[in-house]
Design a binder for these strands. Sequence first.
DNA 1: TCGTTATATTGCAATATTACAATTTAAAAC
DNA 2: GTTTTAAATTGTAATATTGCAATATAACGA
Lengths: 107, 107
Amino acid sequence: MGASKLNIHSKNSNDIAIIAKVFAHPARVSILQYISKQESCICNDIVDEIGLAQPTISQHLQVISQAGLLKGDFKGNSLCYCINIERFQEFQELFNSFFIKLNQSNC
Amino acid sequence: MGASKLNIHSKNSNDIAIIAKVFAHPARVSILQYISKQESCICNDIVDEIGLAQPTISQHLQVISQAGLLKGDFKGNSLCYCINIERFQEFQELFNSFFIKLNQSNC
DNA sequence: TCGTTATATTGCAATATTACAATTTAAAAC
DNA sequence: GTTTTAAATTGTAATATTGCAATATAACGA
């Protein structure tokens, strides 16, 4: 009973699910799109842009960050968040191979 | 206060999040991978394959189905679930355009 | 040093998701 | 018609997620 019976699934399925979870909230999608548009940006800009409270944005940024998708200078009172392109491309490849497999379906 | 402040986000962000949610649970990833391997399959096979109870699988199938990703003959006591390739390719395209945009990030 | 500014952390409430037992539905087989 | 079989629905418990107010931290500038 209850949630999260994740250990019964394959590593591949878990990997894909973990990636998908990052994109599974519109705030995080918007945050990623916004960061990718800027050369550098500070969290306060994001708060204005997205329309959620600062702690909420910070929480979403943590989820994105823990997935390894952010890099930059995390010190100072004006942080530069950037997308970790290498990690992001890993995501993209894993997802694409998943997509390719599913496209072979014939019914 | 509380959850789901989804209306403040752009349609594009919401669309991507809705798609990602389908893939955001390893059971659903496994179910999709399993279905794509078969020409036709019945839910009971899926239950054996994934290792979750029948109502849980049924619930996950509903999530996948509501996203428009399933088609097939839903009548009879031996259902044929197949992946709706057209819808799936829509998903893929939306996701890829999202990926492409993010890849333009320079830091 | 003291205030200012930017972000993180904590605590908590509201809501959503995941899971399954029990039950129901519905078609096929007899 | 009755039994069997496959899947959906219902009800409920456990857990996860989302959101924010309040507070803490930490760097910078005066």
